[in-house]
Design a protein around this nucleic acid. Sequence first.
DNA 1: GCATTGGATGAAGGATTCTTCAGATTTGGA
DNA 2: TCCAAATCTGAAGAATCCTTCATCCAATGC
Lengths: 212, 212
Amino acid sequence: MAAHALVAFEPRKTPIQARSTVTVEAISEAAVQVLLSHGAERLTTTRVADRAGVSVGTLYQYYPNKQSLLFAVLENHFNHVALRVEEACANACHKPLSEMTKETVEAFVDAKMERADISVALYRVAGDVGGPTLVKRVNQRTRKAVEAMLETAPDIKSPPDKFAVEIMLSAMGGAMRSLLESGPSPATVRKAREQLVLLCQSYMAAATAKRG
Amino acid sequence: MAAHALVAFEPRKTPIQARSTVTVEAISEAAVQVLLSHGAERLTTTRVADRAGVSVGTLYQYYPNKQSLLFAVLENHFNHVALRVEEACANACHKPLSEMTKETVEAFVDAKMERADISVALYRVAGDVGGPTLVKRVNQRTRKAVEAMLETAPDIKSPPDKFAVEIMLSAMGGAMRSLLESGPSPATVRKAREQLVLLCQSYMAAATAKRG
DNA sequence: GCATTGGATGAAGGATTCTTCAGATTTGGA
DNA sequence: TCCAAATCTGAAGAATCCTTCATCCAATGC
């Protein structure tokens, strides 16, 4: 059912010539800009097309409807964050558990902050555009990366429950969302980052049987 | 600014006679029902009025616009959850830190699960209706209750940072959201509840200087 | 019984928005 | 140069939706 609901979000046509590639990217970028300047409520296909410097018809040539456009933007953002976390996980293999956790959490926070404005703007539309489904998919992906990393930890006997990793990821995401929506100062972000690391470290330690 | 933005959400007229009291409650309940059956996107003032068994005009007699109606529903739900947590905090005073944490977290999870369907439906509209502002307000309220409780803990030297409590609450909320949106089985809920308790306990312990 | 205030009605105004499609324009290759 | 395919255009169709207001019904107090 969820998969079927996502069908309508898939692109209509794939760019062939170079100019159309430019166009679709301009549209996607314009969507973000409009989201930031006008808000989710005032996000109109016409407005996005105007901002992208093309006509509405062109937009509908690549996206079957408004939702699919927003879905694509959302997917982009999530993929970017997921990639950063995966990189961090690959990089932290064979390190002590607390170090693993620290690097993973920090990668997540940093990736989110990199495009803080977009993150906040997207929270507003996620609900109407298959956000939960996407979140689930990305969480799955991220969880696998984290689990693979944990397998290589030298200082634990058995890796934490699959469920525990999910809890940690969603807790991290929730705290980050709250933080972003409050329009935090850089100092606040730094503090939150520290605390989030501590939160996850202490949980991972508690959910894990130590070696030795 | 945020305060000003909320002005438009305030009710228009206060019920005086008994029948109008019934009416406003019917409207509010109908809003929830429509949210559940038709989704946020198809939530229409006319549809809500129909479901409530009144005419649209009547709805607009009490709510200046559609947003104010949804805002009221959201506020209701949040107040209910906050109240449950406050009760739990009051009840857990003078107990050991881990017990305090356990009871608080469980109260939150249980309050959310009590109306799981409403919770999920509201995630969809929160963005367009001052959700973040409300969340901030409720978090503030909850944080105070938690802090007051922590002051009475016999087994800690200094209570955790105000910031730490905020992190914990938002992490809890985020994990709960993720869980609810996945349509969990009762068994899953039970497991998540346990893990969430563990998460918060280990964090509170780590963020606190122990006495003795 | 009557007047006054509270409450309810619902058709219609006004405003947007999404989406299409027939035709114009540009590109890449023959 | 010339054509077929790829792109682009943007006015107009179609569908909703929010909100108002003139009007009617019900309740309360005198």
